[in-house]
């Protein structure tokens, strides 16, 4: 299979990436994928299809069994452990399990992402309030994260992921616990970020999120790309290994 070299605007590039968990569970098999800067890409598929694994590989929480991953110009295979923060500062991730500190306030949970890059306190407070306002959580500023509902926790996790305006946002089931109105708010926040140039990779079961949006949708099944909905063609291309051609057809 031939591989096209990453275009200059490619921000996420996966080449024949596989991930096998001990002893022999294949989570991803020979995935090749590139995502352009400023693109919104939806990853869909049934549970266990490999969506979360793919996001974890991109954020370098896990390493691939084989293959090459390049994110924002960083070759993750050559990234030493003491430089991982350089990647993580470019990639904001909203985790499926939220990863909130339940004994800290909502504000603390969001602020932590900005504190690690030494943002001034005034900026942190202002940004936190803005995000909470956008996500309809303004009244929860000083509430302990552990006291929030699942849906509220999910929004706090999203707020933390986008707080630093990262180059890439990875969202794993970001609307899984939300009602329609809140989902719309979250998606509006994502689109707003995207308009500012942020690349979004959203893993979701919820087809309403990407229906009629015109954004690229990749369906995973058993660790392989089953189909790709092309933005320009709006159809399902099969087989899926020719994912890179989607970019070409878009151009």
């Amino acid at each position: 299979m031939h591989q096209t070299p990453p275009t200059p605007s490619t921000i996420v590039d996966l080449v024949k990436v596989s991930k096998t968990y001990h002893p022999d569970t294949q989570a991803l098999v020979d995935i090749s994928l590139n995502v352009c800067q400023g693109e919104i890409l939806f990853l869909t598929g049934v549970s266990g299809a490999g969506k979360t694994t793919l996001l974890r590989l991109i954020s370098h929480i896990e390493r691939p069994t084989k293959g090459m991953i390049e994110v924002a110009g960083i070759d993750l295979g050559k990234l030493p452990r003491n430089k991982i923060h350089l990647l993580r500062r470019k990639v904001g991730t909203a985790y499926q399990d939220f990863k909130l500190l339940s004994d800290r306030t909502v504000a603390d949970n969001i602020a932590i992402a900005m504190e690690v890059i030494y943002r001034p306190s005034s900026h942190i407070e202002q940004r936190t309030r803005t995000l909470l306002d956008q996500l309809d959580l303004a009244t929860k500023y000083n509430t302990r994260a552990g006291d929030l509902s699942r849906g509220e926790q999910q929004r706090v996790a999203i707020a933390r992921a986008v707080a630093n305006n990262p180059e890439i946002v990875l969202a794993d089931e970001p609307t899984g616990n939300l009602d329609a109105e809140t989902t719309a708010r979250v998606m509006e926040l994502f689109y707003q970020l995207n308009r500012q140039g942020t690349t979004l990779l959203i893993a979701t079961h919820d087809r309403s999120l990407f229906a009629d949006t015109g954004h690229r949708v990749i369906e995973l099944r058993s660790g392989k790309i089953k189909s790709t909905v092309n933005r320009s063609l709006k159809n399902i291309s099969e087989p899926t290994e020719e994912v890179h051609t989607v970019q070409e057809s878009e151009q």
């Binding site: 954020s59 929480i61 003491n82 991982i84 923060h85 350089l86 990647l87 993580r88 500062r89 991730t93 985790y95 990863k99 500190l101 932590i112 992402a113 690690v116 890059i117 933390r160 630093n164």
Partner: peptide, 15 residues
């Protein structure tokens, strides 16, 4: 848990 989170949000080892 907090230390793990710090790593995930881009804290340096020194931080």
């Amino acid at each position: 848990q907090e230390l793990e989170l710090l790593r995930l949000v881009g804290a340096t080892n020194n931080y």
